[in-house]
């Protein structure tokens, strides 16, 4: 019983991280119709910033992480996304693939293939016992941070002018521009907010997921792939459905890895085949509902993409 609760809480925390990434990817997709495969490399850059400043005060280290991720986000927008505005979605996706690969190569050349340890706040990795259930502080923190980020995002989107413009631009960019909404301002804002979220994930991920304690060139790559899949399965056209897709994916991965045995002779009998199970699930969902699981009856957007 207590084991079950522990597994569930861990799964929800993983879901929260994936949901954060899904929102970051979904925000940019909304205004740019661009699936940013390089999102994981933004997180990687942030994690490197943390790892290289392990000996600095933690706040300085985190500030640096944010600065690096935001600068990189802005650079991507100016150097790559902007010239690609009129390209087909496929070209854009392949181009972000290329950018992801470029950033990985740079990291590999600069820092080598061997991971660097990321130390943020070691205390957060210690467990706390609540009613016989051992939960690490970072697990609780992750869920709280995610909830706060979503609340802030809601306020931004519904209460501010730039948020209103972002929503309008993702629903109907042509009409929004005809009303005077500045496309570049809205896109830059979305890219920056998405960058802030990437930086937050960069801080959380090394503490929350034990396999991500080390940052290497392919840091957060697996997460990005699974989240991208989750976002499309949920329905990339809507921020909420994309987020739910990411969250569901995280919870599913968390639960399956908690319950499956760690070895087995045949496929799908152990947790090493977890990715297969997830991807099979995705294929089935896409076949049944190509427009996404959490979107109600809108084919058009995905078809166009």
């Amino acid at each position: 019983m207590t084991d079950d609760v522990q597994t569930l809480v861990d799964a929800v925390a993983l879901g929260s991280i994936y949901a954060l990434m899904a929102v970051g990817i979904g925000l940019v997709f909304g205004v740019l119709r661009l699936v940013n495969f390089a999102y994981g490399q933004l997180i990687m850059a942030g994690a490197y910033a943390l790892a290289l400043t392990n000996d600095q005060p933690v706040l300085l280290s985190i500030a640096l992480c944010f600065a690096v991720v935001l600068a990189l986000s802005l650079a991507l927008e100016l150097a790559a996304f902007r010239p690609l505005r009129r390209a087909s979605p496929t070209t854009m996706l392949v181009a972000t693939f290329a950018i992801s690969y470029l950033l990985q190569s740079i990291a590999l050349v600069k820092f080598g293939a061997i991971g660097k340890i990321v130390v943020v706040v070691p205390k957060l990795s210690e467990p706390v016992t609540i009613g016989g259930v051992h939960i690490r502080w970072i697990t609780i923190m992750t869920i709280i941070v995610a909830v706060l980020v979503f609340a802030a995002l809601m306020v931004l989107l519904t209460k501010t002018t730039i948020g209103l413009h972002m929503r309008a631009a993702s629903i109907d960019p042509a009409t929004a521009r005809l009303l005077g909404v500045r496309a570049n301002a809205v896109i830059t804002a979305a890219v920056l907010v998405s960058g802030v979220i990437a930086a937050i994930v960069a801080v959380i991920l090394p503490m929350a997921v034990p396999e991500r304690l080390l940052v290497g060139p392919d840091f957060a790559l697996r997460e990005t792939i699974i989240v991208l899949v989750g976002v499309v399965v949920g329905g990339i056209d809507r921020l909420l459905s994309a987020t739910l897709g990411g969250f569901t994916m995280g919870v599913a991965v968390g639960l399956l890895s908690g319950y499956l045995p760690s070895s087995g002779a045949w496929p799908f009998t152990s947790s090493v085949y977890l990715d297969s199970a997830v991807f099979m699930l995705v294929i089935i969902v896409l076949l049944i509902r190509p427009e996404g699981l959490f979107v109600r009856g809108r084919h058009a957007a995905l078809e166009r993409v």
Partner: peptide, 14 residues
């Protein structure tokens, strides 16, 4: 479209 892209990617993953 994108659904085909992701589904084929999922095949690669499996």
């Amino acid at each position: 479209g994108l659904a085909a892209g992701i589904a084929t990617f999922a095949v690669l993953g499996v």
